[in-house]
Structures are given as structure tokens and as C-alpha cells.
Amino acid sequence: MSTSSEPLWSIGELAERAGATVKTVRFYSDRGLLPETARSGGGHRRYGPAALERLRLIRSLRGLGLSLPGIRRVLDDEDAAGPVLEGAVDSRLRELGDELRTLRWRQAALELVRDCPPARRAGRLNLLSALSTPPSTAPLARFWRGWLPPRMPARATAAFLEVAVPQPPDAPRPAQVLAFARLHAMTTAPCPEGRRPQPDVHRVAGARGAAVLYAGLTEAFALAGTHLRRAQAPHPGEALDAYVAAYAGAYRSRDTPGFRRLLAGRLAAEPRLDQYWRLAAIVLSEPGGGVQPTPGSADDWLRTALRQETGTA
């Protein structure tokens, strides 16, 4: 309620004091965000100083991009600077982060098209058209779920996917966009000859044994990653021992020189997987040119170390 000493303004006067338009004031008033203080004898709206402060707050919140429902919740809160406002600001910050990430991916994709030779632009556009912005990792996860043994325990599968599926960077370079687009195309393309062949070790180990195998391989890859970051050449040691132990458990064998020679002959390169890891390495590459180790690069390092040790290189 207004007091006899409280000034009352028309909608035009309130708009002028707030530096807004009459249309803006009427818009917020019609939606119940800016209640009138009184009515004139002719039925015209009148507003007091509290309405001016409220209008300034509304415009500030709109300037930050908050939605009208969000602004209403802030205005209904008794403490205008309390948890409701904090929650609304946090929500808007998350939305802006998502929007910025999308814009950065679109910018890098546009640069990729702009800077490629004209003869390749149509192909680049077709490749990028299948990719959402920012892209989803779901096709990559499905690819690996088809590769891993059926009925492998969910926890073991999730642990492997965490290291096998590269997360799209928030601010990608054009080369990273291209690599992720190629990963998407590769993992969504039909498998050669209609189905993805399963490695012999999957058949031998079974679902439970495969869980143990991949747990051991994850440990070996982490150890090999330390050597890869230091640019050290493949060599025998703890990483190779963990690698061989994982396969020995899967094949129900002991780690012997004979088993190592046999394993070196069994572990053949998989061209499709090698291509996957090459692209994943680009996605994970750092701005200064550094490359994060991937399970693929670690596996290459360990296989080379095994062949060197057993004389099968």
C-alpha cells in the first residue's frame, strides 16, 4: 500500500525514471512481475518507488539472460539476494557454458570447411552433417560395446569405456573436429562383412575372464602411459609384466618365456582399431602439440616391447 507522502507515477513517468520504454513497463506489469501501487480516478495505473526498484531488478536479471519464470521465482523470494537468486544464476551459467561450447564447435567446423581445398569441401560438409554440436559420444560407446565380449560385467565395461571413449574438448581446434567427425563416421559405418570379429582371447576368456583381462590391461596401459609421456622407447619392465599377466590370466596360463613368445605371435594389429586410436589421439591432443596416451598407443608400445624381448620383432 502507498502512503500519503509516497510519490505515485504514471506508467510513462516510471518508464522515464527507469530508462525503459512504456511498452517494456506494460509488458512486465501485464505478466504480474511489476504490480501497480494504485489506480487513478480514471483507472490508470500508478506506481511508487518500490516499483521502480523492482523494475530495475527485473531489467538487470533480464540483462543476465534469466528467463521470466526464473525472474518470478527470484522476485517471490523474500531475500532478493538469497539462495533462489544464487540458484538461478548458477543455472544460467550452466546454460551459457553449453551455448559457448556449441558455438566453439561450430566455429571450428566452419574454419575447417573454409580452410580446406575447394575440391574437398563437399566431402567435409557431408562428414560434418552427421555430427551434432557439440558431438555425442554415444556412437563410440556403442562401437566398443559391440567389440567387448557379450555379458561382460557392467562395471568392467564402464571402466573400459571411460578410458576408450575420448571426450570432445570444450574448445576444439579444426583438426580435432575433423578427427571426431571421422571417429563418428567410422563407428557408425557397417562392420566389414556384416559383423565385427571378436578377438580369440574373448572367446577363450569368456565374459568374467574378459573383465579380469581388461582390468589388467587398464593397469598395464596406465604404466605404459608414463613411459609414453616421457617419450621413452618400448622396453621390458613393470608395464610389460602387467600386460602379459593380464593375457596369461585370460588364457589360463602362466607367464613363462614360452607363453610370451606365443602371445607375441597372437597379438596382431587390428587396422580398424589402429585407425580409431590414431583419431582418438588427435581428439585428445593438447594445444602445444602434446599428445595424451591412449589405450591404443599404450598397446602399440607394449606389443613392441614384447616382440623385442621375445625376438619376434
Rank of each mutant, 00 (worst) to 15 (best):
M1F: 06
E6I: 04
E6G: 11
L8G: 10
S10T: 15
L14W: 06
G19S: 01
G19Y: 09
V25M: 03
V25L: 08
R26M: 08
R26G: 05
Y28T: 09
S29C: 11
D30N: 12
R39G: 00
S40N: 10
R45L: 12
R45W: 13
A50S: 13
E53M: 04
R54C: 02
L55E: 13
L57T: 15
I58F: 04
S60M: 11
L61P: 02
R62Q: 14
G63Y: 12
S67Y: 03
L68D: 08
V74K: 13
L75Y: 10
D76H: 07
E86F: 12
V89G: 07
V89Y: 13
R94L: 14
E95Q: 14
T102G: 11
R104Y: 08
A108R: 11
A109G: 13
L110R: 15
D115C: 07
P117W: 11
A119Y: 02
A119V: 13
R120G: 03
A122K: 05
L125A: 06
N126H: 10
L131E: 02
S132P: 10
P134S: 10
P135Q: 10
T137E: 14
R142I: 01
W147F: 13
W147P: 01
R155M: 05
A159G: 00
E162A: 05
E162K: 09
P168W: 05
D170P: 12
D170M: 11
R182L: 10
M186C: 02
T187I: 07
T188K: 04
A189R: 02
P190G: 05
P190H: 05
E193D: 11
R195H: 09
R196W: 01
P197G: 04
P197T: 08
V201W: 12
H202I: 00
A205S: 14
G206W: 01
G206A: 04
L213G: 06
Y214P: 00
A215P: 00
L217C: 04
L217I: 00
L217A: 04
T218N: 06
L223Y: 03
G225M: 01
T226E: 15
L228Q: 14
R229C: 13
R230Q: 15
H235Q: 13
E238T: 12
A239H: 01
A239G: 03
L240E: 02
Y243K: 01
G249S: 14
A250N: 09
R252K: 11
S253P: 00
D255E: 11
D255F: 01
L262M: 11
L263A: 10
A268M: 09
A269W: 09
E270H: 14
R272M: 05
R272Q: 15
Y276M: 13
W277D: 15
L279V: 03
A281N: 04
P287M: 14
G289Q: 05
G289V: 03
G289K: 06
V291N: 03
P293V: 02
G296K: 09
A298E: 02
A298T: 05
D299T: 07
R303L: 04
R303A: 07
R303T: 14
A305C: 03
A305Q: 05
R307K: 14
T310S: 03
T310L: 03
T310Y: 00
G311F: 09
G311R: 07
A313H: 08
A313V: 03
